[in-house]
Design a protein around this nucleic acid. Structure first.
Lengths: 144, 144
DNA sequence: CTAACTAGTAAATATTTTATTACTAATTTG
DNA sequence: CAAATTAGTAATAAAATATTTACTAGTTAG
């Protein structure tokens, strides 16, 4: 059965890919990497230091120095010293930065909502339950 | 309830993001865009013309001309004329190209399989069923 | 049949991203 | 406490990507 589950999981990724790749369809003001950085911080839901972002996005920290400097100057990100480690700096989204992300997700939200019309009421209930279960169990698998 | 479903769906995307972004972690021989192109064709499971790839990846077709030329030269992609539209060219993966993709997904597969150990047998059954349901219904929503 | 449109190619240019090397200041380890 | 590590910054050169303009050949609409 484990093989079966893994295959279902793998199959899910391409299905979500379209929604995901639409995220930055218009976001024209920022470069790709700038978008990735903001997006990553938004998804992690907490302030991160440079090292963490670098590891999460699989890019050199030297690159981040300048990307983040620009994003701070443009008002999307804020830096604050990390009191636990005085070498480190914590990066977080400003209200402006957070708003831009919320707007992007809002587009996906709308599109999904429209497509929901293609399902019957019973299918909607099933989908709701199944999505909830998947989220819950995948989260559990991630931990530790 | 529709709002609830949409929220579960949105929540699923970041959860899958990690797996997804790991796809090209080592793939060092190709550039980012080259990887994206191969990946996209692989996920669509059929030959695509330049326009479709351009729309799907949200990039100018002019860029694709050269990216695809290089990938053809390196043996990852094959071009064939589209008999239905003599202006167009159909791009598909060569066996080599397909193999590289399968290997990448294999890594995700392995990692997922390991994490499955954190769930009880009952939870595995639930996850299997829920994933299957989600895939089935999301596919249905995509159509037409 | 002609005009308007579309798929793909091409080249020049500007911008972005990557890679390399090196440095400072803070932290951890033995 | 000294030595080794680590977080972040910086400057540079090289490579990749995006943008703009323009062209050819095939298709579609009036």
């Amino acid at each position: 059965m484990e093989k079966e589950i893994a295959e279902e999981y793998i199959a899910l990724i391409p299905t979500l890919f379209d929604s995901f790749s639409e995220l930055n369809k218009d976001a024209a003001e920022l470069t790709h990497m700038q978008n990735h950085v903001i997006e990553y911080i938004y998804m992690q839901q907490k302030a991160l230091n440079l090292k963490e972002i670098s590891a999460g996005l699989n890019m050199a920290k030297q690159q981040l120095t300048f990307i983040i400097r620009d994003l701070v100057m443009d008002g999307y990100l804020a830096k604050e010293p990390d009191h636990k480690d005085k070498r480190a700096v914590l990066i977080s989204l400003t209200p402006t930065g957070k708003k831009t992300q919320e707007e992007k997700w809002q587009n996906i939200y709308h599109k999904f909502h429209q497509n929901l019309g293609k399902l019957s009421e019973e299918e909607c209930r099933d989908l709701n339950f199944a999505l909830h279960k998947v989220n819950q169990l995948l989260k559990k698998m991630e931990r530790k």
